[in-house]
Simulated assay, not measured.
Amino acid sequence: MLKVKNFKIGYDQKVIVKDFNIHVKKGEILTIIGPNGSGKSTVLKAIGRLLKPMDGIVHLDKKNLWEMKGKDIAKNMACLSQRNTAPEDMTIRKVVTFGRNPHKAWFEGINKEDEKIIDWAIEKTHLKDMENKKMIHISGGESQRVWIAMALAQQPKVLLLDEPTTYLDINNQIEILDLVKELNEKLNFTVIMVLHDLNQAAKYSDKVIVLKNGEIQALGKPEEILDKDLIRDVYHVDMNILKNQFGEKLIFIPKKIHGYNT
């Protein structure tokens, strides 16, 4: 589905990420985790063609991403950053409508087929009862659902989500991640996202990548790679690691923070 090979990424000749290689299968949820400054968001920007890598290549369905037209990429991949803004007096439905832009010529308006897709995106993100509300009148969690709805209206194959739960309370964090998981399971979307919370990464991901200082420290199923030694080395924290009541997912409970030079 999506392959990244030999990525080297940086700014102004300063290398931030190097030797980055992944293969994400169709329908997988892959989460990138790691300390602040480890290069998580930088990787996501490069995968989404928002930042040109110094070296390396991305293949989407065997096509070189950097040889594809912008509109063709937008039809296959939707990228949501940490902060997304829209005019405060714009309605939810109007924002979602922008998701159809990649499928339209510059002079084309919205037709009946577009309206059906917009209705579907609004329904899937549970926004139907508030679609005529203005953006200024909705909560942070509702706003995130609007941006995901706009991404769905693009009808992409891949969703890139950069810290989709940032600035949200725990209730809204769970709501957004449950929605992402629901869309992944019901619509077979491939999802690559950046998260900070280890418990959320373990619960919602098929695989995780652990980054430290711009290099991959581990890649695999959360229950197979996230152990005490790895977490201590990457985060400088001792953790109790438990199984949930079903014996399936991991639960991380911090014990002790170590100095960075230990």
Rank of each mutant, 00 (worst) to 15 (best):
Q155H: 11
V180S: 01
E113A: 13
Q154M: 05
E163G: 06
Q144N: 03
E123T: 07
W147H: 08
N184L: 00
L159A: 00
Q155A: 12
E175I: 03
Q154K: 06
P164C: 06
D129A: 15
I117Y: 03
N171M: 09
I118R: 00
K181Y: 07
I117Q: 03
I136A: 12
L161I: 02
L159P: 01
A121D: 04
I148F: 06
A149L: 07
D119E: 09
E123G: 06
E113H: 10
I174D: 04
Q144D: 05
D178N: 09
D178F: 03
E163T: 03
L168G: 06
V180D: 00
N184I: 01
K157H: 06
N184W: 00
M150V: 14
D129C: 13
N188G: 11
I117C: 02
L183F: 02
H137D: 15
E123W: 09
L152H: 02
P156T: 03
Q154C: 05
E113F: 09
F189M: 04
Q144F: 02
Y167W: 15
L160Y: 03
T125A: 08
R145Y: 04
Y167V: 11
E108M: 12
I118Y: 05
P164S: 12
N111D: 13
E182V: 08
N171D: 12
N111T: 08
E182T: 10
